[in-house]
Design a binder for these strands. Structure first.
Ligand SMILES: [Mn+2]
Ligand SMILES: [Mn+2]
Ligand SMILES: [Mn+2]
Ligand SMILES: [Mn+2]
Lengths: 152, 152
DNA sequence: CGAATAACTTAGCAATGGCTACATTGTTTC
DNA sequence: GAAACAATGTAGCCATTGCTAAGTTATTCG
């Protein structure tokens, strides 16, 4: 029997509509690429002195064309600055995003390893999980980490 | 100094190229919607007797049009069967996906709560994290869960 | 220096997944 | 049974994110 009218349901204390989780997930996905690129650009700059399109493509597992267009979006959104045929640089905003992302990423990896997950799988899973770990959950991960309680 | 040729680097034991994590993440994102819809359809069918477009839209936080097109893709991929103006049903394949997804989802929520994360945030974060939790990591979550070691 | 090569850019295709506006079909209600 | 309404479907828009093919620019090397 389709087309049955929605009955108004009586609820007690507003129990977190399920849609909220999906909305949050979509929001996180919308900035995920910015986070991964920022991290990669920061890493490459540190490791090799500059971030080039080809190296980003290699590291992210996409073609250089995909990187090119992503960089254009990141520049539009204020995360990087770039000029034609030159290397890519993070803006202040981009550096902040990179360092926050990098810290969270490494914490997630360390936490998974501390749980007994193999390093390989920890690194693979963390690449996706990291973007959905809120501040509260990150703090819980950090708190559950064995030693060096400070932050080292 | 841009346009510097890539130097061939000498490596020892093949240390998991970083691109692999990003590739895995993209693969997971490609089936994420199927997983969430399968779960939602199974839940609604159990709770209210059938899964209707409006109820799915409500639960997933999108418009009914978005649901409609998603259902078309799911049917194309063999996860659901549907006829115009009728409710939506899971295929065998869809039911399997739903039950695996539901089990993983609930385990992730329970694990986060056991870590001290508030139920609200646990539910919000789990909605995105779940799709990136591999079998190995899920087992580690389960192993770290307080009691009822079996699976209840 | 000029040719070869590597890196980068541009053009254009496709799938996904969101939307609004409008059309159609079932269900309820009078 | 017809009007009103709820639900579903269709048309068409847009942004993102992947791709291949072809063109352009910078670097390197003979
Ligand atoms: Mn990532
Ligand atoms: Mn994700
Ligand atoms: Mn779920
Ligand atoms: Mn989910």
């Amino acid at each position: 029997m389709p087309l049955k009218k929605n009955v108004r349901k009586i609820r007690s204390p507003a129990p977190l509509p399920r849609a909220e989780g999906h909305r949050q997930t979509r929001r996180e996905h919308a900035i995920e690429i910015a986070e991964d690129y920022a991290e990669a650009i920061a890493d490459l700059t540190l490791e090799t002195g500059e971030a080039r399109v080809v190296d980003l493509a290699q590291r992210l597992g996409v073609t250089h064309v995909t990187v090119n267009r992503a960089i254009a979006r990141l520049q539009r959104d204020g995360f990087v600055s770039s000029q034609p045929y030159r290397a890519i640089f993070l803006t202040e905003k981009g550096r902040h995003l990179a360092s926050a992302s990098k810290r969270r990423h490494e914490l997630v990896v360390a936490f998974l390893i501390s749980l007994g997950v193999s390093e390989r799988v920890a690194r693979l899973d963390a690449e996706g999980m990291e973007h959905h770990v809120s501040a509260e959950t990150l703090a819980a991960f950090q708190g559950a980490l064995p030693r060096k309680g400070q932050q080292g």
